[in-house]
């Protein structure tokens, strides 16, 4: 026993180590790298071009088209894809034994959540940052402040969505189940966030759902930060950012609680 090398691992070291692993894995899976940025871009070009003729931005000057209007939502979709696919690996990690080893190590439970969530958010931000470079093509000129504000809003959305993904993956033992929830819950959440069509002009019940959807305020924040067409009278940038920050804090707190109470994950 005298020879033991184990000290208290602290919080920062393990978080950095888990984050590094997340990034290394991602960089080495080239297909993931490409698909999570390319798929939303493809959606944008196809849908944007298709809707161009029929879509008129409510309350905006003539000439602004769907390609411009939908660009902020596409950035959020990049975040959603990258963040969610990163959290799927929690299920794979449990099947492979990796997660058990982490759980049976003296690492603080908070570090397990933060390492995963920060790692996935960093990857999502990197991908969305690349797509952001296409903003001038969408007719949205970039300035230093618009870039920084957009990244800030996207970071908040990234933390919140990774937090949700973490909580879902933690309770599941198959990746198929996760894909189902992704299709039945997360994609509709994006569709009803004002990313795909505006709140204005929708049926009252739908508008209510959209207003209760926390992601609506994330999309709104990105829209305002980029100077993209927005309906007047909606929440300000500060309020939208505030709601997004609260959304992120809530999902992260839930994830930490879940890890503390259900150490072993589902089953067995």
């Amino acid at each position: 026993m005298n020879g033991t090398l184990a000290a208290r691992p602290g919080l920062v070291g393990p978080v950095i180590s888990l984050l590094e692993r997340e990034i290394l894995r991602f960089v080495r899976q080239r297909s993931r790298l490409i698909s999570s940025a390319l798929q939303p871009l493809l959606f944008w070009i196809l849908l944007g071009t298709g809707f161009r003729a029929s879509f008129q931005v409510p309350g905006a000057a003539a000439g602004s088209d769907y390609l411009t209007w939908s660009f902020p939502g596409i950035l959020v979709l990049v975040i959603l894809f990258t963040a969610v696919f990163s959290t799927i690996s929690i299920i794979e990690d449990r099947q492979a034994g990796f997660l058990q080893a982490v759980l049976a190590s003296p690492v603080p439970r908070l570090a397990i959540v933060l390492g995963k969530v920060f790692g996935a958010t960093a990857l999502a931000l990197g991908e969305a940052g690349l797509v952001l470079l296409a903003a001038p093509l969408a007719g949205l000129p970039l300035t230093v402040s618009s870039i920084l504000l957009t990244l800030l809003a996207l970071a908040g959305i990234g933390l919140a969505l990774t937090g949700i993904g973490f909580c879902m993956a933690w309770r599941m033992d198959s990746t198929q189940g996760f894909h189902m929830v992704m299709n039945l819950f997360l994609l509709p959440m994006w569709l009803l966030s004002g990313a795909f069509f505006p709140l204005a002009g929708t049926a009252p019940w739908l508008r209510l759902i959209m207003e209760l959807n926390p992601l609506t305020y994330g999309v709104r924040a990105v829209r305002l930060a980029l100077g993209a067409p927005a309906a007047p009278g909606d929440p300000s940038l500060t309020l939208s950012l505030g709601i997004t920050a609260f959304f992120a804090a809530a999902t992260l707190a839930t994830a930490v609680l879940l890890v503390r109470t259900r150490a072993g994950g589902p089953g067995k």
Binding site: A6, R8, P14, S17, L18, L24, F98, Q100, P106
Partner: peptide, 20 residues
């Protein structure tokens, strides 16, 4: 409990940090 995408050494360094 090793990550297939990482090298043997990367895996060991990672877990050395987690174990303190």
């Amino acid at each position: 409990a090793l990550d297939d995408m990482l090298t043997v050494e990367e895996n060991l360094r990672h877990h050395a940090r987690l174990q303190g």
